[in-house]
Design a protein around this nucleic acid. Structure first.
Length: 314
DNA sequence: AACGGCGACAACCGCAGCAAG
DNA sequence: GCTTGCTGCGGTTGTCGCCGT
């Protein structure tokens, strides 16, 4: 026996909302509020809509002070930086952008920002044909090897421009608040369980050959919430015996194909630019930055914070 | 003018989490 | 501790308009 449907599907209208429906919903909520029960709301106001649909319409479109389109460069940067830090947790990202909805940001990311960043990365890839010859422990096409910060620190990494530090954006003005945010998200950005850059170098022998030592895939997790599962995002062991845990446990690949594509299939940069890919760029950049002593932070989370705070530092 | 491809956006779906009973 | 119902979330799909052929 399954769960009862939230509404009578046969008597519910689907598809785009008419101005009349919008007006009904808006005026009712402005006058009475939602009453804490979205399911009952459409019946109350005589709308042939599912409660969930009403909620979505209100939150994403009718609610006051909603901004649509016209994302600024600063908003782009915030979205990119947070996506790299916490993944596709759109509601949290939206909470940092007043007037923006998670749906809006999600759409914007999927349709524009992702491609924008991917385009940047491709351009850099084209400009670096010689990387393929580099004696890297991971396949030459992998995003790790491709990352300019690893072998060509003089080139800017394919990371988004960090969020500019401004007095107008108090949310990102101190390490503590961002640390709080990241920790609150359930990630291992805590002091107890952080990944410092020594670990990073350990995981990326190609970065620091003196530290080559085969190891099992390290489970670095930001505890990404997903519809299907909670991903334990492993870092890649980049030695020749790379990640036996991954090879021997295909289920570990589930949902992470984008991340392993380069190494497992040797296909190079896939079409998609996803969290894992982004994050591997971040990690490589983190290692690079540590070597150069450019940023204040020495942990991954501090690096993310620095990336957000200090514009122009890669 | 007709058609197809594509991008942008709106809306839907299904699942997880949570609170109340 | 369990069941149930609601909300919130993120992934996915549908629709529409623009553009090139």
């Amino acid at each position: 026996m399954g769960r009862a449907p939230c509404c009578d599907k046969a008597n519910v209208k689907k598809g785009p909302w008419s101005p009349e429906e919008d007006a009904k919903l808006k005026s009712y909520i402005e006058e009475h509020g939602t009453g804490g029960n979205w399911i009952a709301l459409p019946q109350k106001i005589g709308l042939k809509r599912c409660g969930k649909s009403c909620r979505l319409r209100w939150l994403n479109y009718l609610r006051p002070n909603i901004k649509h389109g016209g994302f600024s460069e600063e908003e782009d940067n915030i979205i990119c930086s947070l996506y790299i830090s916490i993944g596709s947790r759109w509601s949290i990202i939206a909470a940092q952008l007043p007037g923006r909805t998670d749906n809006d940001i999600k759409n914007y990311w999927n349709t524009r920002l992702k491609k924008k960043l991917l385009g940047k990365q491709r351009k850099e890839k084209q400009a670096r044909g010689r990387w393929k010859q580099h004696p890297c422990a991971v396949p030459a096409d992998s995003v790790i090897c491709q990352h300019p910060a690893v072998y060509e620190p003089q080139l800017p990494p394919a990371l988004p421009v960090p969020i500019p530090y401004t007095d107008q954006e108090p949310r990102f003005n101190n390490h503590a608040s961002i640390r709080k945010l990241l920790i609150k998200l359930g990630g291992r950005f805590s002091d107890v369980n952080h990944m410092d850059l020594e670990q990073l170098r350990f995981q990326y022998p190609a970065i620091d050959k003196s530290l080559v030592e085969p190891t099992a895939a390290y489970n670095y997790s930001v505890d990404m919430k997903s519809t299907t599962s909670t991903h334990q995002v492993p870092l890649l062991d980049t030695t020749s015996d790379a990640s036996p845990a991954v090879y021997e446990n295909p289920e570990k690949l589930q949902g992470l194909e984008f991340f392993y594509d380069d190494i497992v299939n040797g296909t190079g940069c896939g079409e998609s630019m996803d969290w894992g890919e982004m994050n591997s760029l971040l990690l490589a950049a983190a290692a690079s930055n540590n070597n150069e002593g450019l940023l204040q932070g020495s942990t991954l989370e501090e690096f993310a914070i620095d990336k957000m705070r200090y514009p122009g530092i890669h």
